[in-house]
Design a binder for these strands. Sequence first.
DNA 1: GTCCGTTTTAAGCAAATTTTCAGATTCCAT
DNA 2: ATGGAATCTGAAAATTTGCTTAAAACGGAC
Lengths: 230, 230
Amino acid sequence: MNIKSVQGIRLLLVDDEPTILQFLELGLVSEGFEVKTAHDGISAITAAREFEPHVAILDVMMPGMDGFEVCRTLKKAGYPVSVIMLTAKDEVDDRVKGLKLGADDYMSKPFSFDELLARIHARLRNQFPQLLEEAVHGPFKLDDRRREISYQDRVLELSPTEYELLTYMVHNHGIVLSKALILDKVWGYDFAGEENIVEVYIRSLREKLQDREHRLIRTVRGAGYRVDLP
Amino acid sequence: MNIKSVQGIRLLLVDDEPTILQFLELGLVSEGFEVKTAHDGISAITAAREFEPHVAILDVMMPGMDGFEVCRTLKKAGYPVSVIMLTAKDEVDDRVKGLKLGADDYMSKPFSFDELLARIHARLRNQFPQLLEEAVHGPFKLDDRRREISYQDRVLELSPTEYELLTYMVHNHGIVLSKALILDKVWGYDFAGEENIVEVYIRSLREKLQDREHRLIRTVRGAGYRVDLP
DNA sequence: GTCCGTTTTAAGCAAATTTTCAGATTCCAT
DNA sequence: ATGGAATCTGAAAATTTGCTTAAAACGGAC
């Protein structure tokens, strides 16, 4: 997603399950967020005090102080923090239901990483609209909400992967991006195929941008690709 | 949200569960509302007399005088108050009962704070339009007091779920909404079924809107749906 | 109970997208 | 200029996604 626009945004992750914590942290950091983690409620509160996160992602079920308590404490202290609560699907007793009220959004496990990203963006749009402006880079206009990219004021018709790829590259224009890096960011670290697929998609983008001379998306032989804005 | 200012708007919160009461009060006060709370039906009536709330948020299940009774009493006394009823998901018949007894809207737990905010705003739009902007989006007119949606000045005949879905989507027009998000917001966080049901309902809406070309409700492949107003 | 509208599930189909592959082309170092 | 590696290309194969339809499940009204 849009690396640059997310810089300086602080996320607090709280979960007592180390595996999940690590997994989420890894993903969110590589998206460009500033991330702090805590494995229980008490340390979450402490961390929040000095870290001042924009968004807190809290697991409901934790030993000791649970997610609800953390949420309430943060809100009460007046931090302008958005809270996304994570809970398992089978935790549906009434007490839990009622307490869900304090959070700004709520996701039930299991969920996809992409979905979490979308929720974080939604929260940011709501709470800190000035942080996520519509990005204009030269002839490109990136509209994350509509999920559209315009080039010279014409909306491009892109497949999902093309959209992700172009978003990533335009946000990082002027920088050479290796195929390995692109694979990581766009296809995910666990993609098993060959790097040739990047070439295939670059070709498709060039076609849709009418970039016959490869001047917009430049090939840097042996290093990767670079978007050059006029 | 499409609200100009919330200052001077008075909300009455009634619930016997102190935790929930506190959560809601905290959140709503920080949104700028004037909030008064009551923990049972009797004191709710008393509070309403001198506080004269614009909107009352009542829990259905309370010992002694329940939410319905409070609602009926308030309406009978002629206060110009909008009532939002809170009920647990399995108390299905409560909804119908509540609407018959004069409630203007209902919400089933669990819900997020955002949803409650949206409902309050919706209520205010209808009951006190001078305080807020109109709920007209292009060719759509949303009247959730009557639970009706007009499209090009014709009232649509919608099932309850269709109504919720279209309301949600029109309210968020111009933004891509994933099927997962729609499921959460419209069907509730604990819905167990497949995302296909969203597709089925979208189809039904398109049919009723005569949107054969899918230009009103656009499919954004791999991402979700987006309402585009002409 | 039966009827009726609504919600939900399921399966087949069509289309779009992703991925792979093999041959062509380009580039660079020698 | 030549060989080898990197990149480009076009098209087929594989996969995924969304659309549609019909039937089953459900709930309330009678």
